[in-house]
Nucleic acid binder design. Structure first.
Lengths: 207, 207
DNA sequence: CCGATAAGTTGACAGTGGAAACATTCATGG
DNA sequence: CCATGAATGTTTCCACTGTCAACTTATCGG
Protein backbone atom coordinates (compact mmCIF):
# COMPACT_ATOMS: atom_id res chain seq x y z
CA UNK A 1 0.00 0.00 0.00
CA UNK A 2 2.63 2.43 -1.10
CA UNK A 3 1.56 4.31 -4.16
CA UNK A 4 -1.13 2.39 -5.99
CA UNK A 5 -4.06 4.23 -4.52
CA UNK A 6 -2.55 7.57 -5.37
CA UNK A 7 -5.71 8.98 -6.83
CA UNK A 8 -7.68 8.64 -3.68
CA UNK A 9 -6.07 10.79 -1.03
CA UNK A 10 -5.55 14.33 -2.17
CA UNK A 11 -7.43 17.22 -0.80
CA UNK A 12 -10.85 15.83 -0.35
CA UNK A 13 -9.97 12.20 -0.04
CA UNK A 14 -11.74 10.71 -2.99
CA UNK A 15 -13.90 13.34 -4.51
CA UNK A 16 -14.66 11.41 -7.65
CA UNK A 17 -16.35 8.62 -5.73
CA UNK A 18 -17.99 11.08 -3.37
CA UNK A 19 -19.48 12.95 -6.31
CA UNK A 20 -20.84 9.80 -7.88
CA UNK A 21 -22.26 8.82 -4.55
CA UNK A 22 -23.94 12.17 -4.01
CA UNK A 23 -25.18 12.16 -7.58
CA UNK A 24 -26.84 8.79 -7.14
CA UNK A 25 -28.55 9.91 -3.96
CA UNK A 26 -29.83 13.08 -5.57
CA UNK A 27 -30.85 11.18 -8.66
CA UNK A 28 -32.91 8.77 -6.63
CA UNK A 29 -34.47 11.55 -4.63
CA UNK A 30 -35.25 14.16 -7.25
CA UNK A 31 -35.04 12.49 -10.62
CA UNK A 32 -32.69 13.15 -13.48
CA UNK A 33 -34.44 16.33 -14.57
CA UNK A 34 -33.63 18.27 -11.44
CA UNK A 35 -30.16 16.90 -10.90
CA UNK A 36 -27.76 19.77 -11.30
CA UNK A 37 -24.02 19.63 -11.23
CA UNK A 38 -24.06 22.37 -8.66
CA UNK A 39 -26.33 20.46 -6.31
CA UNK A 40 -24.08 17.44 -6.62
CA UNK A 41 -21.06 19.55 -5.79
CA UNK A 42 -22.83 21.10 -2.84
CA UNK A 43 -23.90 17.71 -1.54
CA UNK A 44 -20.29 16.61 -1.68
CA UNK A 45 -19.24 19.78 0.12
CA UNK A 46 -17.14 21.30 -2.61
CA UNK A 47 -17.44 24.30 -4.89
CA UNK A 48 -19.58 24.11 -7.96
CA UNK A 49 -16.69 23.71 -10.37
CA UNK A 50 -14.74 21.13 -8.42
CA UNK A 51 -16.37 18.29 -10.39
CA UNK A 52 -14.56 19.51 -13.49
CA UNK A 53 -11.31 18.18 -12.03
CA UNK A 54 -12.77 14.69 -12.29
CA UNK A 55 -15.31 14.82 -15.12
CA UNK A 56 -15.06 16.63 -18.42
CA UNK A 57 -18.62 17.87 -18.10
CA UNK A 58 -21.98 16.98 -16.65
CA UNK A 59 -22.61 14.34 -19.29
CA UNK A 60 -19.40 12.61 -18.31
CA UNK A 61 -20.48 12.41 -14.70
CA UNK A 62 -23.85 11.02 -15.68
CA UNK A 63 -22.16 8.55 -18.01
CA UNK A 64 -19.94 7.37 -15.17
CA UNK A 65 -23.02 6.95 -13.01
CA UNK A 66 -24.69 4.97 -15.76
CA UNK A 67 -21.69 2.73 -16.02
CA UNK A 68 -22.01 1.85 -12.35
CA UNK A 69 -25.52 0.75 -13.15
CA UNK A 70 -24.36 -1.37 -16.07
CA UNK A 71 -21.76 -3.00 -13.88
CA UNK A 72 -24.45 -3.98 -11.38
CA UNK A 73 -26.48 -5.39 -14.21
CA UNK A 74 -23.53 -7.38 -15.48
CA UNK A 75 -22.92 -8.82 -12.03
CA UNK A 76 -26.60 -9.60 -11.63
CA UNK A 77 -26.65 -11.53 -14.89
CA UNK A 78 -23.58 -13.49 -13.90
CA UNK A 79 -25.02 -14.31 -10.49
CA UNK A 80 -28.28 -15.49 -12.04
CA UNK A 81 -26.43 -17.82 -14.37
CA UNK A 82 -24.39 -19.19 -11.50
CA UNK A 83 -27.53 -19.94 -9.51
CA UNK A 84 -28.78 -22.75 -11.77
CA UNK A 85 -25.79 -24.34 -13.44
CA UNK A 86 -26.65 -26.57 -16.34
CA UNK A 87 -30.26 -25.41 -16.53
CA UNK A 88 -30.46 -22.71 -19.19
CA UNK A 89 -34.19 -22.24 -18.84
CA UNK A 90 -33.99 -21.46 -15.16
CA UNK A 91 -30.90 -19.38 -15.71
CA UNK A 92 -32.76 -17.28 -18.22
CA UNK A 93 -35.78 -16.77 -16.02
CA UNK A 94 -33.52 -15.93 -13.10
CA UNK A 95 -31.60 -13.43 -15.20
CA UNK A 96 -34.84 -11.78 -16.22
CA UNK A 97 -35.93 -11.50 -12.62
CA UNK A 98 -32.59 -10.00 -11.65
CA UNK A 99 -32.83 -7.49 -14.47
CA UNK A 100 -36.28 -6.30 -13.52
CA UNK A 101 -35.47 -6.30 -9.84
CA UNK A 102 -32.40 -4.15 -10.31
CA UNK A 103 -34.29 -1.75 -12.52
CA UNK A 104 -37.18 -1.35 -10.14
CA UNK A 105 -34.81 -0.94 -7.21
CA UNK A 106 -33.09 1.95 -9.01
CA UNK A 107 -35.66 3.38 -11.38
CA UNK A 108 -34.06 6.77 -11.91
CA UNK A 109 -30.67 5.25 -12.54
CA UNK A 110 -32.27 2.90 -15.04
CA UNK A 111 -33.78 5.82 -16.89
CA UNK A 112 -30.42 7.48 -16.93
CA UNK A 113 -28.86 4.34 -18.36
CA UNK A 114 -31.46 3.72 -21.03
CA UNK A 115 -33.74 6.69 -21.31
CA UNK A 116 -31.77 8.63 -23.84
CA UNK A 117 -31.07 11.41 -21.35
CA UNK A 118 -27.46 11.04 -22.35
CA UNK A 119 -28.06 12.79 -25.62
CA UNK A 120 -26.37 10.43 -28.02
CA UNK A 121 -22.66 9.87 -28.10
CA UNK A 122 -22.21 10.60 -24.44
CA UNK A 123 -21.68 6.91 -23.89
CA UNK A 124 -17.97 6.53 -23.49
CA UNK A 125 -16.17 3.41 -24.51
CA UNK A 126 -15.88 2.05 -20.99
CA UNK A 127 -19.62 2.31 -20.50
CA UNK A 128 -20.40 0.61 -23.79
CA UNK A 129 -18.09 -2.22 -22.86
CA UNK A 130 -19.65 -2.69 -19.44
CA UNK A 131 -23.12 -2.68 -20.98
CA UNK A 132 -21.93 -5.15 -23.56
CA UNK A 133 -20.61 -7.41 -20.81
CA UNK A 134 -24.01 -7.39 -19.14
CA UNK A 135 -25.65 -8.41 -22.40
CA UNK A 136 -23.04 -11.12 -22.92
CA UNK A 137 -24.28 -12.70 -19.71
CA UNK A 138 -27.58 -13.34 -21.46
CA UNK A 139 -25.94 -14.44 -24.67
CA UNK A 140 -23.85 -17.02 -22.86
CA UNK A 141 -26.86 -18.56 -21.16
CA UNK A 142 -28.62 -18.86 -24.48
CA UNK A 143 -25.60 -20.18 -26.36
CA UNK A 144 -25.33 -22.94 -23.81
CA UNK A 145 -29.01 -23.67 -24.13
CA UNK A 146 -28.90 -23.81 -27.92
CA UNK A 147 -25.83 -26.01 -27.86
CA UNK A 148 -27.49 -28.39 -25.42
CA UNK A 149 -30.61 -28.54 -27.56
CA UNK A 150 -32.72 -26.93 -24.86
CA UNK A 151 -33.55 -23.93 -26.98
CA UNK A 152 -34.60 -23.78 -30.61
CA UNK A 153 -31.91 -23.82 -33.25
CA UNK A 154 -31.82 -20.13 -34.03
CA UNK A 155 -28.97 -17.62 -33.89
CA UNK A 156 -28.25 -17.21 -30.16
CA UNK A 157 -27.89 -13.50 -30.69
CA UNK A 158 -31.41 -13.28 -31.97
CA UNK A 159 -32.78 -15.21 -29.02
CA UNK A 160 -30.72 -13.15 -26.62
CA UNK A 161 -32.04 -9.92 -28.06
CA UNK A 162 -35.55 -11.27 -27.69
CA UNK A 163 -34.93 -12.10 -24.06
CA UNK A 164 -33.21 -8.82 -23.40
CA UNK A 165 -36.00 -6.88 -25.08
CA UNK A 166 -38.64 -8.60 -23.00
CA UNK A 167 -37.06 -7.95 -19.64
CA UNK A 168 -35.88 -4.52 -20.62
CA UNK A 169 -39.32 -3.54 -21.80
CA UNK A 170 -40.89 -4.86 -18.63
CA UNK A 171 -38.37 -2.95 -16.55
CA UNK A 172 -38.95 0.29 -18.41
CA UNK A 173 -42.72 0.01 -18.39
CA UNK A 174 -42.67 -0.78 -14.69
CA UNK A 175 -40.35 2.02 -13.70
CA UNK A 176 -42.17 4.62 -15.76
CA UNK A 177 -45.46 3.70 -14.18
CA UNK A 178 -47.02 2.61 -17.45
CA UNK A 179 -48.28 -0.60 -15.90
CA UNK A 180 -49.96 1.12 -12.98
CA UNK A 181 -53.29 1.24 -14.78
CA UNK A 182 -53.22 -2.36 -15.94
CA UNK A 183 -53.73 -4.04 -12.62
CA UNK A 184 -50.36 -5.74 -12.95
CA UNK A 185 -48.51 -2.68 -11.78
CA UNK A 186 -48.94 -3.60 -8.15
CA UNK A 187 -47.55 -7.06 -8.58
CA UNK A 188 -44.11 -7.59 -7.14
CA UNK A 189 -41.55 -6.94 -9.82
CA UNK A 190 -40.06 -10.39 -9.35
CA UNK A 191 -43.37 -12.14 -9.76
CA UNK A 192 -44.22 -10.22 -12.89
CA UNK A 193 -40.77 -10.80 -14.35
CA UNK A 194 -40.98 -14.53 -13.68
CA UNK A 195 -44.30 -14.87 -15.47
CA UNK A 196 -43.30 -12.81 -18.47
CA UNK A 197 -39.94 -14.50 -18.82
CA UNK A 198 -41.61 -17.89 -18.66
CA UNK A 199 -43.70 -17.09 -21.74
CA UNK A 200 -40.62 -16.24 -23.74
CA UNK A 201 -38.75 -19.29 -22.48
CA UNK A 202 -41.71 -21.36 -23.62
CA UNK A 203 -41.43 -19.66 -26.99
CA UNK A 204 -37.80 -20.44 -27.54
CA UNK A 205 -37.72 -23.90 -26.01
CA UNK A 206 -37.06 -26.61 -28.58
CA UNK A 207 -40.10 -28.73 -29.26
CA UNK B 1 -68.03 26.73 -39.33
CA UNK B 2 -69.21 29.55 -37.15
CA UNK B 3 -67.67 29.41 -33.72
CA UNK B 4 -66.49 25.94 -33.01
CA UNK B 5 -62.92 26.51 -34.12
CA UNK B 6 -62.71 29.64 -32.04
CA UNK B 7 -59.39 28.76 -30.52
CA UNK B 8 -57.54 28.61 -33.79
CA UNK B 9 -57.62 32.06 -35.39
CA UNK B 10 -56.38 34.77 -33.08
CA UNK B 11 -53.15 36.64 -33.51
CA UNK B 12 -50.81 34.04 -34.83
CA UNK B 13 -53.30 31.76 -36.42
CA UNK B 14 -52.78 28.61 -34.47
CA UNK B 15 -49.79 29.04 -32.27
CA UNK B 16 -50.42 25.99 -30.16
CA UNK B 17 -50.13 23.65 -33.11
CA UNK B 18 -47.23 25.64 -34.53
CA UNK B 19 -45.36 25.30 -31.25
CA UNK B 20 -45.89 21.57 -31.09
CA UNK B 21 -44.76 21.30 -34.67
CA UNK B 22 -41.63 23.31 -34.08
CA UNK B 23 -40.95 21.38 -30.89
CA UNK B 24 -41.11 18.07 -32.69
CA UNK B 25 -38.74 19.29 -35.39
CA UNK B 26 -36.26 20.56 -32.84
CA UNK B 27 -36.64 17.43 -30.77
CA UNK B 28 -35.82 15.26 -33.74
CA UNK B 29 -32.89 17.44 -34.72
CA UNK B 30 -31.22 18.15 -31.40
CA UNK B 31 -32.57 15.70 -28.88
CA UNK B 32 -34.59 16.33 -25.77
CA UNK B 33 -31.65 17.58 -23.75
CA UNK B 34 -31.09 20.67 -25.85
CA UNK B 35 -34.70 21.47 -26.52
CA UNK B 36 -35.44 24.78 -24.85
CA UNK B 37 -38.72 26.54 -24.62
CA UNK B 38 -37.07 29.62 -25.98
CA UNK B 39 -35.76 27.87 -29.05
CA UNK B 40 -39.22 26.46 -29.70
CA UNK B 41 -40.72 29.93 -29.42
CA UNK B 42 -38.10 31.36 -31.72
CA UNK B 43 -38.68 28.61 -34.28
CA UNK B 44 -42.36 29.48 -34.24
CA UNK B 45 -41.52 33.14 -34.66
CA UNK B 46 -42.90 34.40 -31.37
CA UNK B 47 -41.44 35.85 -28.21
CA UNK B 48 -39.96 33.58 -25.59
CA UNK B 49 -42.95 33.74 -23.28
CA UNK B 50 -45.69 33.34 -25.86
CA UNK B 51 -45.88 29.56 -25.22
CA UNK B 52 -47.20 30.30 -21.75
CA UNK B 53 -50.48 31.40 -23.30
CA UNK B 54 -50.99 27.81 -24.47
CA UNK B 55 -49.04 25.64 -22.04
CA UNK B 56 -48.72 25.96 -18.30
CA UNK B 57 -45.00 25.31 -18.45
CA UNK B 58 -42.36 23.47 -20.42
CA UNK B 59 -43.42 20.11 -19.01
CA UNK B 60 -46.93 20.69 -20.27
CA UNK B 61 -45.68 21.32 -23.79
CA UNK B 62 -43.56 18.18 -23.68
CA UNK B 63 -46.47 16.22 -22.29
CA UNK B 64 -48.67 17.40 -25.16
CA UNK B 65 -45.97 16.34 -27.59
CA UNK B 66 -45.78 12.94 -25.94
CA UNK B 67 -49.50 12.54 -26.23
CA UNK B 68 -49.27 13.04 -29.98
CA UNK B 69 -46.84 10.15 -30.00
CA UNK B 70 -49.17 7.96 -27.97
CA UNK B 71 -52.00 8.76 -30.35
CA UNK B 72 -49.90 7.58 -33.28
CA UNK B 73 -49.11 4.42 -31.39
CA UNK B 74 -52.78 3.83 -30.67
CA UNK B 75 -53.66 4.27 -34.32
CA UNK B 76 -50.80 2.02 -35.36
CA UNK B 77 -52.05 -0.75 -33.06
CA UNK B 78 -55.57 -0.42 -34.41
CA UNK B 79 -54.37 -0.51 -37.99
CA UNK B 80 -52.28 -3.60 -37.34
CA UNK B 81 -55.28 -5.42 -35.88
CA UNK B 82 -57.42 -4.41 -38.84
CA UNK B 83 -54.88 -5.81 -41.28
CA UNK B 84 -55.38 -9.47 -40.39
CA UNK B 85 -58.93 -9.87 -39.14
CA UNK B 86 -59.56 -13.14 -37.39
CA UNK B 87 -55.88 -14.08 -37.14
CA UNK B 88 -54.67 -13.02 -33.70
CA UNK B 89 -51.16 -14.36 -34.21
CA UNK B 90 -50.58 -12.27 -37.29
CA UNK B 91 -52.31 -9.34 -35.70
CA UNK B 92 -49.92 -9.53 -32.78
CA UNK B 93 -46.82 -9.77 -34.93
CA UNK B 94 -48.06 -6.92 -37.08
CA UNK B 95 -48.73 -4.79 -34.00
CA UNK B 96 -45.23 -5.47 -32.77
CA UNK B 97 -43.77 -4.43 -36.08
CA UNK B 98 -45.82 -1.25 -36.10
CA UNK B 99 -44.69 -0.43 -32.58
CA UNK B 100 -41.02 -0.84 -33.34
CA UNK B 101 -41.33 0.93 -36.66
CA UNK B 102 -42.99 3.95 -35.11
CA UNK B 103 -40.40 4.10 -32.37
CA UNK B 104 -37.45 3.88 -34.70
CA UNK B 105 -38.99 6.45 -37.00
CA UNK B 106 -39.27 8.90 -34.10
CA UNK B 107 -36.59 7.90 -31.61
CA UNK B 108 -36.37 11.17 -29.72
CA UNK B 109 -40.11 11.39 -29.38
CA UNK B 110 -40.15 7.83 -28.11
CA UNK B 111 -37.62 8.71 -25.45
CA UNK B 112 -39.72 11.64 -24.47
CA UNK B 113 -42.76 9.40 -24.16
CA UNK B 114 -41.09 6.65 -22.19
CA UNK B 115 -37.71 7.77 -21.03
CA UNK B 116 -38.74 9.35 -17.82
CA UNK B 117 -37.74 12.80 -19.03
CA UNK B 118 -41.16 13.94 -17.88
CA UNK B 119 -40.10 13.82 -14.29
CA UNK B 120 -42.96 11.84 -12.79
CA UNK B 121 -46.43 13.20 -12.52
CA UNK B 122 -46.11 15.37 -15.60
CA UNK B 123 -48.32 12.92 -17.42
CA UNK B 124 -51.67 14.59 -17.59
CA UNK B 125 -54.85 12.61 -17.62
CA UNK B 126 -55.39 12.97 -21.36
CA UNK B 127 -51.98 11.54 -22.06
CA UNK B 128 -52.46 8.60 -19.74
CA UNK B 129 -55.75 7.81 -21.42
CA UNK B 130 -54.27 7.95 -24.90
CA UNK B 131 -51.42 5.70 -23.81
CA UNK B 132 -53.91 3.36 -22.24
CA UNK B 133 -55.87 3.25 -25.48
CA UNK B 134 -52.74 2.21 -27.35
CA UNK B 135 -52.17 -0.60 -24.88
CA UNK B 136 -55.78 -1.65 -25.13
CA UNK B 137 -55.16 -2.32 -28.82
CA UNK B 138 -52.80 -5.09 -27.79
CA UNK B 139 -55.09 -6.36 -25.07
CA UNK B 140 -57.97 -6.70 -27.49
CA UNK B 141 -55.95 -8.75 -29.95
CA UNK B 142 -54.92 -11.09 -27.18
CA UNK B 143 -58.37 -11.35 -25.62
CA UNK B 144 -59.71 -12.43 -28.99
CA UNK B 145 -56.90 -14.94 -29.33
CA UNK B 146 -57.46 -16.41 -25.89
CA UNK B 147 -61.20 -16.62 -26.46
CA UNK B 148 -60.67 -18.38 -29.77
CA UNK B 149 -58.26 -20.83 -28.17
CA UNK B 150 -55.35 -19.60 -30.27
CA UNK B 151 -53.39 -18.42 -27.27
CA UNK B 152 -52.78 -20.18 -23.98
CA UNK B 153 -55.41 -19.88 -21.30
CA UNK B 154 -53.77 -17.22 -19.16
CA UNK B 155 -54.99 -13.81 -18.06
CA UNK B 156 -55.03 -11.73 -21.26
CA UNK B 157 -53.57 -8.83 -19.35
CA UNK B 158 -50.55 -10.86 -18.44
CA UNK B 159 -50.02 -11.95 -22.04
CA UNK B 160 -50.54 -8.42 -23.27
CA UNK B 161 -47.97 -7.06 -20.86
CA UNK B 162 -45.54 -9.69 -22.06
CA UNK B 163 -46.11 -8.69 -25.67
CA UNK B 164 -45.94 -5.02 -24.86
CA UNK B 165 -42.75 -5.49 -22.88
CA UNK B 166 -41.09 -7.35 -25.71
CA UNK B 167 -41.79 -4.81 -28.41
CA UNK B 168 -41.24 -1.90 -26.09
CA UNK B 169 -37.89 -3.24 -25.00
CA UNK B 170 -36.86 -3.87 -28.57
CA UNK B 171 -37.90 -0.37 -29.52
CA UNK B 172 -36.00 1.21 -26.65
CA UNK B 173 -32.86 -0.84 -27.17
CA UNK B 174 -32.92 -0.06 -30.86
CA UNK B 175 -33.46 3.65 -30.46
CA UNK B 176 -30.82 4.04 -27.79
CA UNK B 177 -28.25 2.29 -29.93
CA UNK B 178 -27.79 -0.56 -27.49
CA UNK B 179 -28.10 -3.13 -30.26
CA UNK B 180 -25.50 -1.52 -32.47
CA UNK B 181 -22.74 -3.71 -31.14
CA UNK B 182 -24.65 -6.94 -31.38
CA UNK B 183 -24.72 -7.30 -35.13
CA UNK B 184 -28.49 -7.11 -35.11
CA UNK B 185 -28.50 -3.36 -34.85
CA UNK B 186 -28.19 -2.90 -38.58
CA UNK B 187 -31.12 -5.12 -39.34
CA UNK B 188 -34.21 -3.31 -40.51
CA UNK B 189 -36.40 -2.54 -37.55
CA UNK B 190 -39.34 -4.35 -39.11
CA UNK B 191 -37.36 -7.52 -39.73
CA UNK B 192 -36.03 -7.59 -36.22
CA UNK B 193 -39.43 -6.90 -34.74
CA UNK B 194 -41.01 -9.69 -36.76
CA UNK B 195 -38.49 -12.26 -35.56
CA UNK B 196 -38.66 -11.25 -31.94
CA UNK B 197 -42.43 -11.07 -31.92
CA UNK B 198 -42.61 -14.51 -33.49
CA UNK B 199 -40.73 -16.04 -30.57
CA UNK B 200 -43.19 -14.62 -28.10
CA UNK B 201 -46.16 -15.64 -30.23
CA UNK B 202 -44.71 -19.14 -30.24
CA UNK B 203 -44.48 -18.93 -26.48
CA UNK B 204 -48.06 -17.99 -25.89
CA UNK B 205 -49.68 -20.09 -28.58
CA UNK B 206 -51.81 -22.87 -27.16
CA UNK B 207 -50.28 -26.29 -27.64
C1' DC C 1 -68.54 51.39 -31.24
C1' DC C 2 -66.60 49.83 -26.99
C1' DG C 3 -65.05 47.45 -23.21
C1' DA C 4 -63.61 42.85 -21.70
C1' DT C 5 -60.52 39.42 -22.59
C1' DA C 6 -57.55 36.42 -25.11
C1' DA C 7 -52.97 36.60 -27.21
C1' DG C 8 -48.42 38.21 -27.46
C1' DT C 9 -44.29 41.28 -25.80
C1' DT C 10 -40.80 43.31 -22.78
C1' DG C 11 -37.97 43.09 -19.03
C1' DA C 12 -36.57 41.14 -14.97
C1' DC C 13 -34.93 37.30 -11.83
C1' DA C 14 -32.67 33.16 -9.89
C1' DG C 15 -30.52 28.97 -11.25
C1' DT C 16 -27.73 26.39 -14.66
C1' DG C 17 -23.37 24.54 -17.21
C1' DG C 18 -19.11 25.97 -18.27
C1' DA C 19 -14.50 28.87 -19.03
C1' DA C 20 -10.66 31.51 -17.06
C1' DA C 21 -7.70 32.86 -13.70
C1' DC C 22 -6.26 32.15 -9.26
C1' DA C 23 -5.01 29.56 -4.82
C1' DT C 24 -3.75 25.52 -2.30
C1' DT C 25 -1.84 21.12 -1.36
C1' DC C 26 0.67 17.09 -2.35
C1' DA C 27 4.74 14.07 -3.87
C1' DT C 28 9.13 14.09 -4.99
C1' DG C 29 13.99 14.81 -6.66
C1' DG C 30 17.93 17.83 -5.79
C1' DC D 1 14.58 19.19 4.01
C1' DC D 2 12.59 21.95 1.01
C1' DA D 3 11.56 24.08 -3.54
C1' DT D 4 9.13 23.07 -7.56
C1' DG D 5 5.63 21.41 -10.68
C1' DA D 6 1.55 19.07 -11.20
C1' DA D 7 -2.90 17.80 -9.26
C1' DT D 8 -6.80 19.54 -6.90
C1' DG D 9 -10.03 22.99 -5.50
C1' DT D 10 -12.01 28.08 -5.47
C1' DT D 11 -13.62 32.59 -7.20
C1' DT D 12 -15.40 35.17 -10.58
C1' DC D 13 -17.60 35.70 -14.71
C1' DC D 14 -20.67 34.72 -18.82
C1' DA D 15 -24.43 33.10 -21.84
C1' DC D 16 -28.49 30.67 -21.54
C1' DT D 17 -32.61 28.70 -19.37
C1' DG D 18 -37.54 28.58 -17.24
C1' DT D 19 -40.71 31.49 -15.27
C1' DC D 20 -43.10 35.67 -13.34
C1' DA D 21 -45.10 40.43 -13.53
C1' DA D 22 -46.46 44.30 -16.04
C1' DC D 23 -47.41 45.99 -20.33
C1' DT D 24 -49.47 46.25 -25.27
C1' DT D 25 -52.38 44.78 -28.96
C1' DA D 26 -55.84 42.43 -31.51
C1' DT D 27 -60.40 40.27 -31.45
C1' DC D 28 -65.25 39.53 -30.52
C1' DG D 29 -69.86 39.96 -28.25
C1' DG D 30 -73.12 43.37 -26.76
Amino acid sequence: MIGEMAKTAYHHGNLRAALLDAAERLLRADGVASLSLRSVAKAAGVSHTAPYRHFADKQALLAALAEIGFARLRDGMAAAAAKHPGDPRRQLVEAGIAYVRLASAHPELTHLMFGGALPDDAADEAQRQTAQAAFQGLVRIIEDGVRAGTFVDRPPLELAVAAWSLVHGAAMLLTTGRLDRTGLGRMRAETLARRLAQHLVDGITAR
